[in-house]
Simulated assay, not measured.
Amino acid sequence: MVIGEPLVEFSASAPLTEADTFHLSFSGDALNAAVAAAATGAHVALVTLVGEDEFGERLIRFAAAHGVDTRWMRRGPGSTGAYAVGADPSGERAFGYMRACSAASRMGPSDVSAAPLAQTSVLLVSGVTAALSASCAHAVLHAAEVVREAGGKVVYDPNYRSRLTGAEAAAGVLAEIAPYAALVTPSCPGDSLPLLGTGDPAEAVRACLGLGAGAVAVTRGADGVLLGDRDGGPPVEIPAVPAGLIVDQTGAGDAFAGTVAARLSAGDPLREAVRAGTAAAAVSLEGQGGTGRVATPEDIQRLLGELSGTSDTASA
């Protein structure tokens, strides 16, 4: 299960200060992750509110067409959120959000409680969702508590966005949810510097474990993932999967998180789930926008097979 806000996406291949042509699609971290998870074959539901407008209707159809269970994508007051993103082939990007007072920002604990939280094997939530409003933050924490108490796993992606929230508030949410999380997936330095005060991946692992997380996967772009857990051993280096073509970095982290959550739900060991996530992220880089290119199980198997000669190494 994924909780968050799907968005109408207007993407351009040029910076927003220069772009005059945009491609219409649908994205947002929750939708990107849900679509990536569904593409692996997982049964994934997206829990959200969309506006009672044409774009809300199209978002529900889009999610359903990508294999997402849309029974808990409900219509509500407020508009459907949107954003514009400008990117270039090097992957640099800037976002302009149009989501103030959106339907999804009005979600609260009662909205997520309508979904079968107690029957959820893995819940994926993010700092973006928690930053939409105080009620959304309460909804994220409530869902994490219910899933954890029912025996499910919680995956939390801090996904810090300075245009949505401040570092102190985002760090506070991370500290609150970490004790419920089986896995936290901060990026370094994007999340680790503002939220944990460090640009060192190993220190970020220790900091998240110190907050109570069961395991930590620090994503570092082309440098791969540093994976640590509470077993006390040294963190493990998971190499990045090289992308065949870099078109746009939008949604790569979401593809990673969604794929990892799906593979954990299927019973994969954590390290193997993370390896699959790195492959899905590499495939995502090849498409424009957050859902422009989604990895299939065959894509993941092929890419990991090409890296079969690369062994994980321990890092102090």
Rank of each mutant, 00 (worst) to 15 (best):
G76I: 08
A19E: 03
A213H: 11
D248W: 06
D200M: 02
A255Y: 01
G197K: 00
G51R: 01
Y97M: 11
E272F: 01
A207I: 13
E52R: 08
A104W: 06
S113Y: 01
H66Y: 09
T80E: 09
A82H: 02
G151E: 07
A243M: 04
P235N: 03
S162Y: 04
R271I: 15
A243W: 04
V294F: 04
T40C: 02
P235F: 08
A204G: 14
L46D: 06
A114D: 13
R61I: 09
V122K: 02
G199M: 03
S27C: 14
S113T: 06
D191F: 14
A243E: 04
A240K: 01
P6E: 12
A281C: 07
A33L: 07
P179M: 10
V247M: 02
A204P: 11
E237P: 08
E237H: 13
A213M: 11
G67M: 11
A314V: 14
L16F: 00
G190T: 14
R302Q: 13
R206D: 10
L270M: 06
L164D: 12
P89E: 08
D53Q: 05
A243I: 12
I238N: 12
T296C: 09
R163M: 09
M107V: 14
A175G: 15
G91T: 07
L196A: 05
G151I: 15
V247H: 04
C136T: 00
T48N: 03
R58W: 08
E92A: 13
V112N: 06
G56Y: 11
G267A: 07
A139I: 14
V122C: 05
A276F: 03
T219A: 01
V125R: 00
G251H: 05
R75C: 04
A65S: 13
A314G: 14
L270P: 04
A215Q: 01
A222K: 12
A281D: 07
R293G: 05
D223L: 13
A170M: 12
G67I: 13
H142I: 12
L245I: 12
F95T: 11
S102M: 08
A131E: 00
S308W: 04
E9D: 11
V274Y: 06
G212Q: 03
P116G: 00
A82L: 10
S25G: 15
P89K: 00
A38G: 03
A282P: 08
C188G: 03
G152Q: 00
G91M: 03
G214V: 07
S162K: 03
N32R: 06
L193W: 08
A257E: 01
G166W: 02
A273H: 08
G197A: 03
A144I: 07
P15H: 04
